[in-house]
């Protein structure tokens, strides 16, 4: 995805995360101040710094910190363990699950859907997930957190879209399945053909909007003070470090 405006670029910081009995390369962008939320990205590229740098920078524009890892070569169970490890990691950054947007490409998208069964995530997105996998997950564990799926019409199993859409409609959480006409599973990788460019652009717009209206924002120190005052109407001592 190309940014329309040239902005200062932040190089994601590489690290290694142990999860599910194995080590995973990760990339992260931390922000100062009071970030809007955090996005956990599951990319297909083996190198998360290379594969996730662009969307991570795009998310920074909307105030999201991010942590990315690769799902390349991982089976479903290993993906789930990786997701658990990444979510645990961002809790150490002081993010609760409802402040997390989980965005996955390909298999990462189905892993994001699977994680929705617990119902505690702010939002999740699957970009070009295999619909056969989506169907299987939706049948077994109906999503309880909002999930957005986007697929290309020319992807191998898009014939399942109607069935999958009906399944997801019956889920407790709000879900949406978008099928982009005339494009294949790689529609999210921006390219010159008009339909691909349009799909890639629209796809990213939807990701950002999906997260913005669902991921719970982190309260500022003053907002936390206000919360405290609501719960204890009497005088509340100022927490250490609270700006005045």
């Amino acid at each position: 995805m190309d940014l329309d405006v040239t902005l200062p670029r932040i190089e994601p910081a590489p690290a290694v995360l142990a999860a599910g009995g194995r080590e995973h390369a990760t990339a992260s962008i931390r922000l100062g101040g009071v970030p809007r939320g955090v996005a956990v990205l599951l990319v297909e590229d083996h190198d998360p710094v290379r594969g996730a740098s662009e969307p991570m920078n795009a998310l920074v524009e909307h105030g999201f910190e991010s942590l990315a890892a690769s799902v390349a070569g991982l089976e479903a169970l290993a993906c789930d363990r990786l997701v658990a490890g990444l979510l645990e990691e961002v809790t150490t950054w002081d993010w609760s699950p409802e402040q997390v947007g989980l965005v996955g490409w390909g298999r990462g998208g189905t892993a994001a859907l699977h994680r929705c069964a617990t119902g505690d995530l702010g939002a999740a997105v699957g970009i070009s997930p295999a619909l056969a996998d989506v169907r299987e997950i939706a049948c077994a564990d109906a999503p309880r957190s909002p999930w957005l799926g986007m697929v290309g019409e020319l992807a191998p199993d898009t014939g399942l879209a109607e069935e999958v859409g009906s399944l997801l409609d019956g889920a407790p959480a709000f879900t949406q399945l978008v099928v982009y006409p005339g494009v294949g599973p790689d529609f999210h990788r921006d390219a010159a053909p008009a339909l691909v460019h349009a799909a890639a652009f629209d796809c990213w717009q939807r990701v950002v909007e999906w997260l913005n209206v669902r991921v719970s924002p982190r309260p500022t120190p003053y907002a936390e003070l206000w919360e405290l005052r609501q719960h204890h109407s009497s005088d509340v001592p100022t927490p250490e470090g609270t700006p005045r």
């Binding site: 702010g122 913005n212 209206v213 669902r214 991921v215 719970s216 924002p217 309260p219 500022t220 003053y222 907002a223 003070l225 100022t238 609270t242 700006p243 005045r244």
Partner: peptide
């Protein structure tokens, strides 16, 4: 779940609670 006023960016949830005010330190504690 969250609706943000496009004028100055204040955000509210569907329970009606104000959850975010851009630059809220200017309003005082």
């Amino acid at each position: 779940r969250f609706m943000t006023c496009f004028y100055h960016g204040w955000s509210f949830n569907t329970s009606g609670k104000l959850v975010s005010v851009p630059g809220d330190t200017s309003y005082g504690r």
